[in-house]
């Protein structure tokens, strides 16, 4: 089993938990790092490795409050990897959004449409 990746949140970067043993895959809080490519590289690397021997089912939770446009591209990369994984194993993507935050809802719908992959949209 792979070692879990656990990144603590800061005022401009999210908390990321990628843990195959407990089956927790989650990214939460705010995300507007100065260097989005650098910030997400470890997570993207982790998911690439995980996809080589994944759990039978992967439930990924996106619980973001805000993200900037440079992060949106990196989030798309993560979603692409998950979509790829879904071709051989079960993948559930839950996209959480505040019911008043129509921009966060639209972002989830946009990704879902782009990937032609149905998300579980969770209103909070």
């Amino acid at each position: 089993m792979m070692e879990a990746l656990n990144i603590k949140a800061t005022s401009d970067t999210p908390e990321i938990i990628l843990d195959a043993i407990s089956g927790t895959f989650e990214i939460s809080q705010r995300c507007f790092p100065e260097d989005a490519v650098g910030f997400f590289s470890s997570s993207i690397e982790w998911i690439k490795n995980y996809a080589k021997s994944p759990n039978s089912s992967t439930h990924f939770n996106f619980k973001l409050e805000y993200f900037n446009t440079s992060s949106s591209k990196q989030i798309f990369k993560i979603l692409l990897l998950l979509e790829e994984l879904s071709k051989k194993n079960e993948v559930i993507i839950s996209w959480h959004y505040n019911k008043e935050d129509s921009d966060m809802l639209s972002s989830g719908e946009r990704y879902s449409k782009l990937l032609q992959f149905k998300f579980d949209m969770v209103e909070i």
Binding site: F32, Y66, N68, N98, E100, D101, D103, M104
Partner: peptide, 17 residues
């Protein structure tokens, strides 16, 4: 108006970055 406050936040981020 949470949606508005989030928009303001987001746009400040984009403009400043």
């Amino acid at each position: 108006d949470l949606a508005l406050r989030k928009k303001i936040f987001n746009i400040i981020v984009e403009l400043s970055q």
